[in-house]
Write a protein that binds this DNA or RNA. Structure first.
Lengths: 188, 188
DNA sequence: AGTGAAATAAACAGATCGGTCTGTTTTTCA
DNA sequence: TGAAAAACAGACCGATCTGTTTATTTCACT
């Protein structure tokens, strides 16, 4: 079990980064919370930034998996899946731990697009986009990328509004807008 | 001219906070850049957080004024203003200094909704919403708040996508979606 | 010209930052 | 069972952090 300590460290780091932010969370805090020695961290990672990227990559895979699974549970028809996406968002917003999107937060703290942390955030959003486009394709859209772009905008907007304005209802507003856009895109 | 030093300090702080983030920008850096003594800062503000709020409030007023003015320059009819909003966004995204929305970034670093910094960010987004609702009302929408919410989602989504994915074109995609939503809302 | 407010420079405080180093203990596996 | 690998505790490093203190200088206004 060579990497169990490493995994636990990344897991703890992810939680703290999400709760408190990246710059605001010190290495020592993570180590104390994880119950791990400092040298263990620096044997697995060259720097705090590498730990951040590892934490983001972990959440990337896991979040998308959770998201797609919930969508599949709530709808069967591809067209319905495009819509229930926003119900899943609402679930997320209403969860206790909701503190915005950790990738948006990461890009906010690491604004330089060439920064590895920013790149990890961009990676996730690209995969999110791919997922939506795939659903749009299955729903029979003639321009799945175009529809996907519009729905992505609504999704990201909902996340931001829900967080900044503390308004989880943004998901439902986004769903209404999505309904209109989907109807228009799949008409005829 | 009692407050010229103070103004210059807030101005410098705003620039640096936007460029580098809030936690990542130290007091000393701001003071050096502004050419101001440390005691001058602490005579005007009780803490760094107060300086942050002052910087955000300054940008709040100024940004909304710039935004509304550009919208007025590009369109006359209220309905057109709802649309050219997204052209103005695109101008902003394509500017050299674009690094996302400083209020979204602030909320990302200060996630707690009761934090004065977060509250300042929320204040700005509420005013942005009010502005859009007002335009929707002038455009003759029967549900200006509903339309305003949807357009706000598109706007915030465009900002996030433009920043995280380094894709200023998000503004144009948002404009297309807005066109559809506006048509639907103002139909009949 | 003189007074009081405002800004200055610079040392200082105490905590924390990311990261390194050493030496010891635990775990893993052949 | 024994050697290599991994994790451990914790001291230590220099730098930086926000904020305070003190004493000096600038400057507007009467």
């Amino acid at each position: 079990m060579a990497s169990s300590k490493r995994d636990h460290l990344v897991e703890t780091a992810l939680t703290l980064f999400y709760e408190q932010g990246f710059h605001a969370t010190g290495i020592d805090t993570i180590l104390r919370e994880a119950g791990v020695a400092k040298m263990t961290l620096y044997n697995h990672f060259k720097s705090k930034d590498e730990l951040i990227v590892a934490a983001l990559d972990l959440h990337d895979a896991r979040f998308l998996e959770w998201f797609a699974q919930r969508v599949d549970e709530l709808a069967d028809a591809p067209r319905d899946k495009l819509l229930v996406m926003f119900d899943v968002l609402e679930e997320w917003f209403n969860g206790d731990a909701f503190n915005g999107c950790v990738f948006i937060n990461a890009a906010a703290e690491y604004g330089n697009c060439n920064d590895p942390v920013h790149e990890a955030a961009a990676r996730h959003k690209r995969l999110t986009f791919d997922y939506i486009v795939d659903m749009a394709k299955q729903a029979g859209s003639v321009d799945p990328r175009g529809l996907g772009q519009q729905l992505l905008l609504l999704q990201e907007g909902a996340i931001v509004v829900a967080h900044v304005l503390d308004a989880p209802i943004a998901a439902r507003q986004a769903k209404r807008a999505a309904q209109t856009l989907i109807d228009q895109a799949l008409a005829g």
